[in-house]
């Protein structure tokens, strides 16, 4: 009779692979992350609250959450549309465009940042037309939204696409034979299948946008109280040797990220379960 934490398997190497994984995970990820909470624990509650409720910090949180939310919403709508067009229609260059959707994943954020700034600045390729319309894109909150939309663009597309691909075409035919027109078929039959994926993609895009730094700092202009995002504020505090302030702000940010991660995990488990029972 065997006693152990794992079930019997004829395959070897559990001990070494598990041991190495656990050690590496602890050294690189878990222990360093704990130091953030140790550093924050050094503060009294009063000190902590004073730091995180100061007007400049609150303004930056408002900007980070607000802009991330708007960007993730924009990406949900356009991501769904892009996924639909790329998956359902055929037109020349479709494959290339499909590949291009991954550019924000692969492009270094600093490159994205300077490229977007060049394009959306008042003298840029697009910015000059927006300027005529009286819209200031770069160096304004709108610039932050543009950058966050860019980096979050692939998430909804890539979570919706596989669901759309797996969707049994017969359910659409069934809806049609039952008398539903195309819009009803889409809204009543197809969309309910896609919604969980859209929500997961939204959460992923939002979470990514919240922590984003590189692509934003160039285009935002970094004006305190106006266009200063939370990650930038953390760096600023660090550069002023205010380690405690940086740690306190980061702790709030990290807690928000973990809550989001938890939600994303729950969403994904749920959709996996949903797919399994289907």
């Amino acid at each position: 009779m065997r006693v152990g934490i794992k079930k019997f398997s004829v395959l070897p190497g559990f001990g070494i692979s598990m041991g190495f994984s656990a050690l590496y995970l602890s050294l690189i990820v878990l222990i360093p992350l704990c130091t953030l909470f140790i550093a924050t624990a050094g503060l009294s509650l009063g000190e902590f609250m004073q730091i995180v409720t100061s007007p400049r910090v609150v303004a930056s949180f408002r900007l980070s959450f607000g802009a991330s939310l708007i960007a993730a919403l924009v990406n949900s709508v356009f991501g769904l549309l892009l996924a639909w067009v790329l998956e359902r229609y055929s037109f020349p260059g479709r494959r290339i465009l499909d590949g291009m959707v991954d550019i924000p994943f692969a492009l270094p954020t600093a490159v994205a940042g300077i490229a977007l700034t060049a394009v959306y600045a008042a003298n840029g390729w697009i910015g000059r037309y927006l300027e005529v319309l009286g819209i200031k894109a770069a160096f304004s909150p709108l610039g932050v939204v543009i950058a966050l939309t860019f980096i979050g663009l692939p998430f909804v597309v890539r979570t919706v696409q596989p669901v759309l691909k797996d969707l049994d075409f017969e359910i659409e035919e069934a809806a049609a034979t039952l008398g539903a027109d195309r819009w009803k078929t889409f809204s009543m039959v197809i969309l309910p299948h896609l919604i969980p994926a859209v929500i997961t993609g939204f959460a992923l895009a939002f979470s990514r946008a919240l922590g984003e730094y590189g692509s934003v700092v160039f285009i935002s202009g970094n004006m305190p109280m106006k266009t200063e995002i939370v990650p930038l504020l953390i760096i600023t505090r660090l550069e002023q040797y205010d380690t405690k302030g940086a740690a306190a702000i980061a702790a709030v940010m990290l807690a928000a990220s973990f809550v989001l991660l938890l939600i994303i995990n729950l969403l994904q488990w749920r959709s996996r379960y949903y797919h399994a029972v289907r």
């Binding site: 995970l25 990820v29 878990l30 222990i31 360093p32 992350l33 130091t35 953030l36 140790i38 550093a39 954020t109 979470s207 919240l210 922590g211 984003e212 730094y213 590189g214 939370v230 990650p231 930038l232 953390i234 760096i235 660090l238 040797y241 380690t243 940086a246 740690a247 980061a250 940010m253 990290l254 990220s257 973990f258 989001l260 991660l261 995990n265």
Partner: peptide, 27 residues
């Protein structure tokens, strides 16, 4: 889930934790 953790952490915070650990005034 723990393996995915670094993707949920802002890159700036990723840098910060190592400063808090190995920096001159770090642990």
């Amino acid at each position: 889930s723990l393996i995915d953790l670094p993707f949920a952490v802002s890159p700036v915070i990723a840098g910060l934790i190592f400063v808090l650990l190995y920096g001159t005034y770090g642990l």
